[in-house]
Amino acid sequence: MTAAAIAVSKPKRKFKLTKRVFSYPYVLFMLLFVVIPLVMILVNAFLDSDNTLTLDNFADFFTDKSSLIILANSLLVGVITTAICLIIGYPLSYILSKMPSGRVLVLFYVLPMWVNFLIRTLATKAIFIAIDVPLGMGTVIFGMVYNYLPFMILPLHTTLSSIDRSYIEAAQDLGADSSTVFLKTVLPLSVSGIISGITMVFIPTISTFAISQLLSNGKIFLFGDSIQMKFEQGLYGVGSIMSLVMLAFVLVSNFIINRAGRKSGLSVGRSLW
C-alpha cells in the first residue's frame, strides 16, 4: 500500500497552495523589519565603535555600577508597581466579576488606557506640582500604577468572570464557607489571570521610558530611559547589551505566561498604547 501511495502521489489542491502565498509578503516584511533588526541588536552587542568583535560591551555593562543600579532600581519599581496593581486590581476584578453588570462596568476602569500615556502622565504631573507634592520615587510609582492598573484588571477580570459559577456553588454545597470557597476554588482558578496580569504590568513598567523622567523631574532613571539614553549617545554596543537583557526578561515572562496556560486577552491588554 505504501508503494502505491508514493507512486501515485497527486498534486495537492491547487487553491490551497495559492492561499498560502498570501502570507509571503508579510513573512518577508517580518523577516526584514522584525527578525533582522533583532539579530542586529545581537550582533551589535559584540561590536565596539570601530565595528570590531569584542566582549568589552558586556564587561562595560556588568561592571558599570550606575547601569546596574539603574537595573536594580527598575526591578524594584517594577516589583512595587506590580504588587500594588495586584493588590488594588484583584479585589476590584473579583467584585466586578460577581456583579451582573460587571462586563460593562469593567469598561470604565480600562477606558483611560485608551488615552495616550504621555497625556495622562503629564496631567498627573501638573496636578502633583499644583498641590505641592514633591516629585520623586512616590510620584513615579503612583504614575506607573495609574498607567498600568488597567493591564492588571483586564486579564484578571477575563479569567475571574469566566470561572463557572457552578464550581463556587459546588464548593458551597460541599460546606465551604465564603473564605474557603475563595481560597480553594476562585484563587486557584484565576492563577493564569494573575500571572498574565503580573507580566503585563511588570515588563512595560521596567522598560517604558519617559514616565519616570517626567514624574521625578529627571531624577529617577529606569532601564527603558537608560537604553534610550545609550542609543542617543551613540553607545550602540552597551545599548544593545541592555536591550538583550530586556529581551531576556520579555522571553522569560512570556515563557511563564505560556506555561500557565494563557487564556485571557494578552493581545487586548498590550494593544492599548
Partner: peptide, 13 residues
C-alpha cells in the same frame, strides 16, 4: 510581547 523600547532601538539600528 516584545518590549516597545527594544523594538524601537532594533529598528533604529
Amino acid at each position: 510581547i516584545n518590549s516597545e523600547i527594544v523594538m524601537a532601538v532594533s529598528l533604529m539600528i
